[in-house]
Amino acid sequence: MLPLEYILILSAVLFFIGLAGVLIRRHVIIMLICIEMMLNAANINFIAFWRYNPNPELHLGPLFTLFSIAVGGAEAAVGLGLVIAVYRFYNTANADKFDMLKDS
């Protein structure tokens, strides 16, 4: 069978790639996608710990993951609505150019 560490390492690496993506890329939509990736990494963690729990009949792992998926979907919807609204104003999706509030 599979040791628990392997799954945790996978989810840690996925979280790292998502975090790096948010901090590295310029395009706003890719940043939102990488946030979704981080959420998914956390979901894998939840399910892995639930599976290896000595008491999995309570089904708390899948339950919490369902709420997490729902919240992630809602956040993606609102975030993409914001992206569309901001694009309408700036006419670019490059996050480095959103500098109207900059003090200079």
Binding site: V28, I29, L32, I33, E36, N40, N43, I47, W50, R51, G61, P62, T65, L66, I69, A70, G72, G73, A76, A77, L80, V83, I84, Y87, A93
Partner: peptide, 27 residues
């Protein structure tokens, strides 16, 4: 965790993916 797998496919692949593609289209 098969219910969560199905929810993942339904929500992320079916809905959030299409949403992201629409947003890519519009921007």
């Amino acid at each position: 965790a098969e219910f969560v797998a199905v929810a993942q496919i339904l929500i992320y692949l079916g809905a959030v993916g299409v949403l992201i593609l629409f947003a890519v289209m519009l921007t």
